[in-house]
Design a protein around this nucleic acid. Structure first.
Lengths: 161, 161
DNA sequence: TAAAAATACTCCATAGGTATTTTAT
DNA sequence: ATAAAATACCTATGGAGTATTTTTA
């Protein structure tokens, strides 16, 4: 079981509706979410939801698991915060890759908007190729995941675009 | 962050050695484990390990996170047990696919050995193809994951072997 | 110089997507 | 008739593998 399943289950359980949870809260497709919830149930060997035509309802086990899932997610969030605090990181650093065509076009407004939304995150822009040590390991969280044009998008473990 | 990362980190932290944790406890390759631990550190933005040539040592943040990770994993185990109990499943059912060639050759000793190791797990063997409702969703946990002969192995979402 | 970790790729399992069908109201 | 969930199938992300190189006690 993975934490993703818990996040998914909590969303579905709270909304009692797979389609809306998928679209509005989790931003994944309805079939994908249905599948993940079913996999979770299979793995636990416990039915968590009762499916009806118009929605979905929690079983007794599902209600209990909702409480547990929330608690576990909270637990992990707090654990990360605590450990970050110990490491002396009150501010998060977000490193993002930059590529020439976007510089000066979308980046300024993008950065401004992001800074506003996440004031505790410090954004660092890197050129590519570069000698910068961060280029080895950073995860490019802003780069849009684009299915139509395969030129861009998050490309883990490789060269940032 | 996913629970897998926590399991991996706990193993590495307890053994203070990536290679041995990979081989002996987690049964994954050393590079894969190194990568996952590094990804975890990147995602948290906190250095958890100090790498030396002969081993690996926990940082202060790492020590704190070890406690947290253990607690979270325990929390999830207990949550699953609790919910399983509510659903009235004291015994786990393991459904495995069967195929003619193996029947009568490896299955009997395999089942005997498994039953001994996991007395609380009830193993059910299914023919294929079959009308059985379990054939839709069961996860075939016993089927060996074999990289050399691609004929078998866990094949999620499809027809069991 | 011998371990342990890091790096550089390759591969494939599976999360996620689109299209469609089923189901219950 | 409609809205939600299930099913079928496809794509491609990223976890895991093998081979190799770097590091330092």
């Amino acid at each position: 079981m993975e934490l993703r399943h818990l996040r998914y289950f909590v969303a579905v359980a709270e909304m009692e509706n797979v389609s809306r949870a998928a679209m509005q809260r989790l931003h994944v497709s309805q079939p994908s979410l249905s599948r993940q919830i079913r996999d979770l149930e299979d793995e636990m060997g416990v039915q968590l939801l009762e499916r009806t035509a118009k929605s979905v309802r929690l079983t007794e086990a599902g209600r209990a698991f909702l409480d547990e899932a929330r608690a576990i997610l909270k637990h992990t969030d707090e654990a990360v915060s605590k450990v970050r605090a110990i490491a002396g990181k009150s501010q998060t650093e977000l490193h993002i890759g930059d590529w020439p065509l976007a510089t000066g076009r979308v980046m300024p407004s993008l950065l401004r908007a992001y800074q506003q939304a996440m004031p505790n995150t410090k954004v660092k822009v890197h050129d590519w190729p570069g000698r910068d040590k961060h280029c080895r390991s950073a995860r490019w969280s802003i780069a849009a995941r684009d299915h139509s044009s395969s030129a861009q998008g998050k490309r883990a473990r490789g060269a940032p675009v």
